[in-house]
Amino acid sequence: MLSLIQKDDLNAYLKPSEVVDYNNPEIQLKAWELAQGLEQIEMAKSIYHFVRDEIHHSLDIESDIVTCRASDVLKEGQGICFAKSNLLAAFLRFMDIPTGFCYQTLTHEDGFVLHGLNAVYLDGGWFRLDARGNRADVDAQFSMGKASLAFYPLEEGEKDYPYIFSQPDKGILSILMLSKSLEEVMKILPSVLNW
């Protein structure tokens, strides 16, 4: 089991930002709807399942739309892993659950690419959640015990970064905000985390 390292003060994992824009009324409305009547852990589980299952991974549906800001991911109903992690963070932070950002380097086609997921602070500890979206070869689940992620770095050159960041990687955000197509994004995504 990976030992997770909190990089910032716990309060930093609750703040909104340009892309974790939980001040948006649509984010707030959906978060309240998903959390209604639930205790904190069940609320987090409900929100996670919504982002994992109801927000499509853009590559899985062969879309070329690029989203980044949480409110845009919700509006479009899709995003790649980094965008979906922004949405999950926005929902959970709005519901006062500290949420951070984690990364992996994974094999992709003929090289490597970064993958983004979240870490959530519940019941006195951090655990990782990957809301990328399941498919035939991916079975990520909500788990506060042993991590149940979309991917596990197993091949040579792959890496699991143990750090929990309060904000998404600026380089990734810049790529998502400036790219005109998903094809362009995939061509220029970095393969390692520069921190």
Rank of each mutant, 00 (worst) to 15 (best):
K180R: 12
D130S: 04
V120Q: 09
K84I: 11
G116A: 11
L182T: 05
E184P: 06
Y121I: 01
V113K: 12
D8Y: 01
K75I: 08
F82S: 15
L29T: 10
D160Y: 12
L154S: 13
L14R: 01
G100H: 10
K7W: 02
D21W: 01
S143F: 12
R128A: 10
Y161E: 11
P98E: 10
A44W: 09
I188E: 07
D96G: 01
V19R: 08
E42P: 06
N24T: 02
K146H: 11
D64V: 03
D53G: 07
P25K: 00
C102D: 13
N118Q: 10
L10K: 01
I80P: 00
L193Q: 07
I41A: 14
F50N: 11
A83L: 10
D123S: 14
D96Q: 11
L4E: 02
R128P: 08
E76H: 11
I27A: 00
F50C: 10
L14C: 02
L178Y: 15
I47D: 09
S3Q: 13
K30P: 05
T105R: 14
A35R: 03
Q40F: 05
R93I: 08
S174Y: 12
S58M: 02
S174I: 03
L176E: 06
I41V: 14
V192P: 03
L106I: 15
G79I: 03
P162S: 07
